Amino acid sequence: MRLFRSTARGDHAATTRPPSISGTVIAEVRKLRVDLGGRTVLHDVDLQVRTGEVLALVGPNGAGKSTLLGAIAGDVVAGSGDVLLDGAPLASWPPLQLARRRAVLTQSYDLSFPFTVRAVVAMGRAPWARTPAEADDDAVVDAMLRRTETAKFARRGFGSLSGGERARVALARVLAQQAPLVMLDEPTAALDIRHQEAVLHTAAERARAGDAVVVVLHDLALAAAYADRVAVLHGGRVAACGPPAEVLTGELLSRVYRHRIEVIRHPRTGAMLITPVRKRGVRRGIRADSGPGDLPLEIATS
């Protein structure tokens, strides 16, 4: 089911860039180490990002997901190792060329000036100024507003929107940039279930069109449903990377998240269901199952 609508006219304008060959390595990190705040956040990370795929980065808080995304985007400086874009060192790309190759959605959507929603989305077209692609600006912006269901408040001030609405506008800006590498840092965090599904559906559409999509997620069920590959980060390292069915196992997830996690198949659809294991008990002071080698966690519920 298509949740974020698109039209034939808008899609034509939004897909004039020739698609990449599916399976091509567009970005790669080799033996990457990143130090932040006096500690090593990433240790010897190797990872490839391929066109035609959604790659999900998952893992507990502090595992290094956003740092890895930032390093691939060029927003986080590597202490050692290599970050390559289209086979060339990331640092060798001029800023304008880099902006035409990769688009980044960060976790922060704040703006200092009272821009309208349409103006914010149009910012995504800045890398194509004074090029033949500039002729498509209005059509692309319109298409992305429709796709993210934000056209109805295109003339409103960005600051007047709710957190979820801002998130969708920010996604529209990133999509309008039309870069072959799309990087999304927790794009579903502020969204309701319907729009969470819609964002990941849109990401999957971009991958099917030949782009590469890297997305940081906390929701393991979304990763299982939409990612072609999942990289599980743990302690600043990639604990496993591969298809969801191979990587998202109860044993690995229980160890990484330090809490017992069960992975089962839906009896009707066969979809992967990923859930924490909870002991039955009184509503207040439920004692959760402990992760391997950890003390139990006390969970107070209201």
Rank of each mutant, 00 (worst) to 15 (best):
E205H: 10
A176I: 13
G37E: 12
A170R: 04
R155D: 06
E186V: 13
R258M: 12
R101A: 10
H43I: 10
A103H: 00
A224G: 12
R102K: 05
C241K: 08
A190S: 11
G250K: 15
Q48M: 08
A13R: 06
T51L: 04
M123N: 04
P89S: 13
T202R: 02
R255K: 08
V29P: 01
Q178M: 00
K279D: 03
V277Y: 07
H234T: 09
R260T: 03
E246A: 15
S108M: 03
Q178Y: 00
T116H: 08
R156E: 00
F115Q: 01
G291P: 00
E246P: 07
A129Q: 06
E197S: 10
L161G: 07
A13V: 11
R278T: 05
F115C: 06
R156L: 02
T116C: 07
A189D: 01
V58M: 05
F153D: 02
M123Q: 09
M123K: 05
E246C: 07
F4W: 07
G291H: 00
G236P: 09
G70T: 07
P292T: 01
P132T: 01
S66W: 09
V232R: 05
L295T: 12
P18I: 03
G62F: 03
P95V: 15
D137H: 09
D44M: 14
R2M: 15
G10K: 06
W93T: 09
G250I: 11
L217S: 14
R101P: 00
E205V: 14
E165T: 08
K152Y: 05
V214E: 12
V256E: 10
D142T: 14
P244T: 13
E165A: 07
S108G: 03
R268P: 05
L200C: 15
S302N: 12
H12E: 15
V213E: 08
V247P: 04
I72W: 11
R101D: 00
V117L: 00
S108I: 03
A154W: 06
S66D: 05
L84K: 13
G70H: 03
P187R: 12
S22V: 10
S112M: 13
R102T: 08
R5W: 08
T150N: 07
V25H: 00
V49S: 05
R166H: 10
L68T: 06
E134N: 10
R255P: 02
V83Y: 07
